[in-house]
Design a protein around this nucleic acid. Sequence first.
DNA 1: TCAAAATGTCTATTGATATAGACAACCATA
DNA 2: TATGGTTGTCTATATCAATAGACATTTTGA
Lengths: 244, 244
Amino acid sequence: MAGQKVQRQTGVALWRQIADRIRTSINHGDFDEAGMVPPETALALQFGVNRHTIRSALAALAQEGIVRAVQGRGTLIERKERLSFPISRRTRFSQGIGDQVRETRSVLLATSEEPASTELARQLKIKIGTRLVRLETLGQADHRPVSRATSWFPADRFGAIAEIYRTTGSITKAFRELGVPDYVRVVTEITATHADEGDLADLQLSPGAIVLVAQALNADLDNIPVQYSISRFAADRVRFTVEN
Amino acid sequence: MAGQKVQRQTGVALWRQIADRIRTSINHGDFDEAGMVPPETALALQFGVNRHTIRSALAALAQEGIVRAVQGRGTLIERKERLSFPISRRTRFSQGIGDQVRETRSVLLATSEEPASTELARQLKIKIGTRLVRLETLGQADHRPVSRATSWFPADRFGAIAEIYRTTGSITKAFRELGVPDYVRVVTEITATHADEGDLADLQLSPGAIVLVAQALNADLDNIPVQYSISRFAADRVRFTVEN
DNA sequence: TCAAAATGTCTATTGATATAGACAACCATA
DNA sequence: TATGGTTGTCTATATCAATAGACATTTTGA
């Protein structure tokens, strides 16, 4: 694997490009045998840059907690992870990744009531201006933030959902208490974009990082829409799996 | 929309962060009424940076062909597009986006024959070392590159697929000629990452750009795997839609 | 036709990024 | 314990990124 090129004068510093590539390689398992990253001098040769530039890249990865440099020995890999997140008719946050991590948790960041916009009314198949409950939530796996989501629910049926969610930390349980024994995923739209200000804060990312955006519509068993949500996932921590 | 913050000293130049945000806004339709981007002075105020920094961002977008500055008038939006790409049991490249653009085309970049790696053997449910045909293809919509894909097919059944694909430009037709009247998508894995060197060239992207990566397995009607592919899409040009 | 508003161009200065080289400090092991 | 390989630190220099200000050029519309 000789001479991987990096692009200059593109507005993305070399150290950041290299940090992104090394992080990808770690997640891909390229250095699993040694359990550590190649020496700085080797990386400098490989990427065709100065050793100091490599050091900047590794310092950034150390800041993220991905590697740890030990003088005299080398740079050890501390953590590698990319959770597989299934998307199916029965998509649930905690269930889907439950067998991949020790602990999943969901935190309510904020909630409010607001009238349905044109777009939300179209998605939820209701009239514009219908009152909705909005929930801002943060999904965590083993105490590391994985996703942040904004969800809307018709207020007439689910006015109390925020309070129930706050105590149970589960949408599924909240639905059950409010007379929806089961629900299914109708459609999911997936895009990718750069992390915005909120992503950087909530998901603990660095600028230029990527988020996968999933816009989803859930309906009850009578096919009546019950939830529309926009979830943003740290792209280097998750992968979506669509089973057909 | 006042005072959107940009992050400093993160290895991503301010002009690039701002270019990415403006591109996203354009694709989101934020400036559709005017058909043009706000004045440079207004953007400078909004992002809290110098006007020259805004000009660098707009120059980058002009280079991509997304906007065009006209002295005395303003900066016009030239192009906005994000194709919707359905993922379902019957996912096909050209069919899926056929009604959204005037012309879709698929080009064969390269082909070769190679033995199955451990990973490919696992996916295609064959023995390691089984001979495979590898196809490198480029998908275009209205003469703009949208995706690049690497596909593998068992060589015993599909040894001639490269030649047929080269003339027809269609996997579906090639399958049909080789005795596979129909096929279905078994599973799709979706991730997002930064564009690599090949993406930049083939998809005409700039560094720091995002690609959506879809790893897919297709099987014939007897549920025997016929194709494993890794497709890379320019994230700002497509969106995946999962119908459940 | 003039003025306002917008983009285009130029100079100057500061801080971040990248290269280059040298050497210190530390670890593993022969 | 001596040696080779590794990370840590320092100085110096050149280029890119960002700010600041001034003014020219073009378009639009009052």
